[in-house]
Design a protein around this nucleic acid. Sequence first.
DNA 1: GGATCCTTCTTCTTCTTC
Length: 417
Amino acid sequence: MLPVRMKFVQLLCMKPGKLETLFQIPFCQKQFPFMCLATSTCLHSKKKKVNSYELVDQEKYNNLVSSVTSYKTGAQTPETIFEEDNWLYGPPKQQKRPVKAETKAPKHWVPLINPNKKIPLLNNDSNFPMKIPLQENKTKMPSVTHILQQTISPQQAIYLERWKQKMILELGKDGFAEYTKNLFLQGHLFHAALESVFLSEEMVTKEQREDVTVSGYLSSVERVLKDISEVRALESAVHHEGLQYLGLVDCVAKYRGQLCVIDWKTSEKPKPSLKNTFDNPLQVAAYIGAINHDANYDFQVSCGLIVVAYKDGSPAHQHFMAPELCSEYWNKWLLRLEEYMDRNPPKLSSAEIKGVIEAFPTEGAQVPLHLAVTLDVTVEHPLQAKAFATQLAAMHHSIVTGAGGELRNGRGRALEP
DNA sequence: GGATCCTTCTTCTTCTTC
């Protein structure tokens, strides 16, 4: 109670103009002992309507202060305090919610679904899933997992490091290395077993069946497998032609009738919600975008599925990602990719310089390359494209992730999709 | 034959009061 009164007095000091109003309203009559009123009548002289702070009788004012602060009767109730506060500070303002960190938008947005991809009317009905080896992508492009690892949030990095140090304390350095090696091995074996399941009618090889761990994971996904059909790709390399990244997709198949990029995961801990899978949804979205922009695949995918399998055979958690959710994660992926590209701008090879020269032959020419964009390089005339390219190469500047660019008025810029 | 690549996993939140 006392602090409220103190504040009240403070306010009186700060806003002398309020004194007038204070003693006119009925509430204070209820609240303050007679002595206060007496004092107030002195202060509140109609002749001196100016009522500036200097005019306050300091001695009497001190009395007011002491009378107020020593006011100890139990007359205050929560209601009167509320009333008082309300008068002093005005009606309570709605507590402003902390503004959510603005959802960042990627600088150069590229759609997840490729509007230019022609899907053959007659679907290639070979029942054999595609498996494109990695080596076909000769150019040096960063991979999805590498980009995600390099752009992990500081918070996540701290948790991971803390966990790692704890494990090393428990197991020792060698023990920890053995532990991670084992985890990776389990993942590999599980993937291999799944591939056998999808490729051959007969379930799995003898060794795989006999492997206790793998059989646990397999029985964990047994029910999911019943919902999988029309496997279109297995452990197949994908690369995004515009955005210049690559990856190895686990599986593309229909899950309950919808074509999905499927990521099979093994986990020690249960992961009942999609949020428990950390960056996995971004990985899936990145693969979907890559498939849709990879000429090797004559189909497009708009859904994703993350299956988390458990060693003890308990039912796997399946997280289906509908198209809207995939788009959401696609945007998050684009941001991570941009962050990575900003930190590791690709250097131009001589072949790429040649590509730039060829791509900028005339004014307004389209540049169907990943090498477009915020080029702070100016050329006087299109014929100077060569000089421009050389300068560009020298700077190996802001190569963008956009779908393309153009040269207009001697300046390269990104094309809005 | 060796080297390299991609991937395989690992993390997770607070506070008060009744």
